[in-house]
Simulated scan of single mutants.
Amino acid sequence: MAGGDARSDAREERRNRLRELVTGEGFIRTADLAARFGVSVMTVHRDLDALQAQGWLRKVRGGASCLPSTQFHGSAGERLTTMVRTKQLLARAAAGELAPGQVVMIDDSTTCLHLVRHLRDHTPVTTISNSLPVISALAREPGVAVIALGGTYFPAYDAFMGAHTARSVQAFRADVLFMSTTAVTGGRCYHMSPETVQVKQAMMAVAGRRVLIIDHTKFAHQGLYALAPLTDFDLVLVDDAAPAAEVRRLRDNGVRVRTVATAAAPSGAPGPHGAT
C-alpha cells in the first residue's frame, strides 16, 4: 500500500512539473519529456492525457502545447484577482436584471461569480451553474435552490466542461443567463477552449434572456473559437473604460449596450489578458 502511495505521489509530482514546463516553454516534444523525466513515451502520453482532461494543456502532433486559454485566462485563482472592483460594479449593475422566482443560469466566469452575493436580495430563486465556486457559495444560501451541472471537472477553470456538461444543460430552461467571455472581436465573442464554447452555446440555447457582462479588456484580446455575435444577447453590460468607437459600433449594429460607471474604481492587480 505504501509503495502504491509513493508511486502515486511521484506521478503527481512529475505531472505538476510537466505542466509547468509546457506552460513555461509553450511547446515541448514528447520524446524530450520522456528523456527529461526518465520515463517511457507511453508514460508521457498518459500524463499528457490526464493534464489535457484537466484543462491545463493540449496534446498536439509530436508533443504538448500550453492551452491558449492558459495564456489568456490564467488559473481560476489568478482570474479571481484580476479587475476585481470593475467586475464587482458590473455584477451589481447586472443584479438589476434579477427578480424573485426566476431560474437563473450562471456561467463559470469570475465576472459572474460576483453576482452571487446579490441573489439573496431576490429570493426565492433557482440557480443553475457549472461553476464549482458558484455552486459552493450558494449551497447553503437561504431561499436559493442550486442545480449543479456535472461533467468533466477542469481544475484550470474550477468548473465542469465538455460534452456531458453541455448535454446536461439541455435538460433545463432558464429565465435568464448571465455570462462573460474571453474576447470580443468584430462584434463576436471568442474563447480559447472548445469545451467552453460547447457549454456556453448550450446555455444560450435554453435561456429566455441572455445577459453578457464584459470589462473593457475583452476588446483588446483575441480568441480562437467563435461563440456568438453580440446581437444574440438581450443586454451587454460593459464598463465605461471600453473603447467608445467599439461601443458605438455595437449599438449601430443593433446590440443593446449599457455602460456602467467604473472609471474611479481600482481594477486590482494586473492579471492574465482577457480573464473572464
Rank of each mutant, 00 (worst) to 15 (best):
R29Y: 06
R249F: 04
D32A: 14
I128E: 04
G74Q: 06
L224G: 01
A228T: 11
L132C: 04
A166P: 12
E97D: 10
G186S: 10
L177F: 11
G96E: 11
V199E: 04
V238Q: 09
D49I: 07
F72C: 08
P229W: 03
E20C: 02
L237D: 04
Q52T: 00
S168K: 02
T123C: 12
K87I: 02
R188K: 11
L235W: 02
Q198P: 00
T165L: 13
T196E: 12
V144P: 07
A174P: 08
H118W: 14
E20V: 01
V144C: 12
H273E: 04
A241I: 04
G150M: 01
C189W: 06
E195G: 00
G186W: 03
T126F: 09
M83F: 12
I214R: 08
G162R: 01
L113H: 09
V125D: 00
V146G: 03
S180G: 12
G63P: 15
D121Y: 13
L119W: 11
V134K: 05
P133F: 01
H73E: 14
T81Y: 09
V236N: 07
K218A: 11
R248S: 15
P155D: 15
A91L: 09
T259G: 00
F72W: 00
N130W: 04
A207F: 04
S129I: 14
A265W: 07
S8M: 14
V39D: 15
G274I: 09
P100T: 13
A159L: 01
A228Y: 06
V199A: 07
V125W: 01
M204S: 07
P243T: 10
T182L: 15
V22E: 14
A269D: 10
L237R: 12
L237S: 02
S75M: 07
A263R: 15
V39W: 03
G208T: 07
H221G: 07
V247I: 10
A171E: 11
R58D: 06
S75L: 09
A228L: 12
R7P: 07
G274H: 02
L177E: 08
Q102C: 05
H273K: 09
H122I: 06
